[in-house]
């Protein structure tokens, strides 16, 4: 499923003077199947408003442009949002804050029961088991526990399982690593790659963490004042001074280092992932005779 937005506009409180706020301003973007797509920009630049359009949590306004997700036309009044949401999973910041059921099993099964009314009990059990083991939890150990008795990290995993259990094709994550300790963050990112490999096709990440974007995203869109001011690979975005200045974003460390090393004539280029950056740097150091 592709996401295609054409001239997408959105205004909060359009009729109230003073309170009215244009959150999206002619947004054009195409997110292809299979991408890990980054949505970046400062707080209030329109990122959240945009991603919430993708599964119809915010509906396209009249005359607000066009938005298609796969075959779903979100400007169509008859658009079936429920089946769309089954295919576009969305995880908000601190997803563990939406746990509610008495047992982990019930909580994870919630989405399944909502999306497929006639699903059998065996199938539910099988899917819940699969989702829990995907996020690295032992089904038999946790299924009957209250989600509120788990540790913070486990709660977050249960919450993720509760989203991916519906087997969405697109997974939208809003600031997914917020509040995790370094180890939790590392494990979460590994999980993300695993999910992308064999669970969900497309991942869309809203994040303030430029190091994460440089490392994991295939492409990204830069939001600023409700507009997308640039779309491209992390390399294209972070090597364009204009974009960085206009959007007020920080550079990922690898990009900052690359730029400074370039000006010293030590290396010529890198794609800003840690691996590629160190590789290029090692080659340069070897050529310069600093490593033998």
């Amino acid at each position: 499923m592709k996401v295609v937005a054409k001239n997408l506009n959105f205004t909060y409180s359009p009729k109230t003077k003073g309170l009215s706020f244009r959150a999206l301003d002619n947004v054009n973007v195409e997110i292809k199947e299979g991408e890990i797509f980054g949505i970046i920009g400062k707080t209030g630049s329109g990122k959240s408003t945009f991603v919430q359009h993708i599964n119809g949590l915010i509906k396209v306004q009249k005359g607000g442009g066009a938005l298609k997700v796969g075959d779903y036309d979100l400007t169509d009044k008859k658009c079936d949002y429920k089946s769309l949401r089954a295919k576009v999973g969305m995880m908000f910041q601190y997803p563990e804050h939406q746990l509610f059921a008495e047992t982990v099993f019930e909580d994870v099964a919630f989405a399944l029961k909502n999306f497929a009314k006639d699903i059998s009990a065996e199938e539910i059990a099988a899917r819940v088991k699969e989702a829990l083991s995907t996020v690295g939890l032992d089904y038999n150990e946790v299924k009957d526990k209250s989600p509120f008795d788990l540790s913070g990290g486990q709660k977050r995993r249960v919450a993720i399982a509760g989203v991916i259990v519906a087997k969405p094709e697109i997974l939208v994550l809003d600031e997914p690593a917020a509040g995790l300790d370094p180890k939790g963050k590392r494990e979460f990112l590994e999980l993300l790659l695993r999910l992308h490999k064999d669970y969900v096709k497309t991942i869309i990440i809203v994040s303030h963490d430029m190091n994460l974007v440089a490392e994991y995203c295939t492409r990204a869109a830069v939001f600023s004042g409700g507009k997308i001011i640039a779309t491209g690979t992390p390399k294209e975005i972070f090597s364009d001074k204009n974009i960085i200045e206009k959007s007020g974003l920080d550079l990922p460390l690898t990009a900052a280092l690359t730029e400074k090393l370039k000006s010293k004539g030590i290396i010529t280029d890198s794609d800003f992932t840690v691996e590629d950056f160190t590789e290029k740097l090692i080659v340069a150091l070897k050529n310069g005779g600093k490593i033998r």
Binding site: Q52, R85, F92, H97, Q98, F110, N114
Partner: peptide, 27 residues
């Protein structure tokens, strides 16, 4: 925020009779 998160998981707050809707609010 919570309403949106549960809607994203397929929760339906708009259809059904009053009991169904009340039950839908538990999450």
């Amino acid at each position: 925020r919570i309403i949106k998160a549960q809607k994203a998981r397929g929760a339906d707050f708009e259809s059904g009779n009053i009991f169904k809707r009340a039950k839908a609010l538990i999450p």
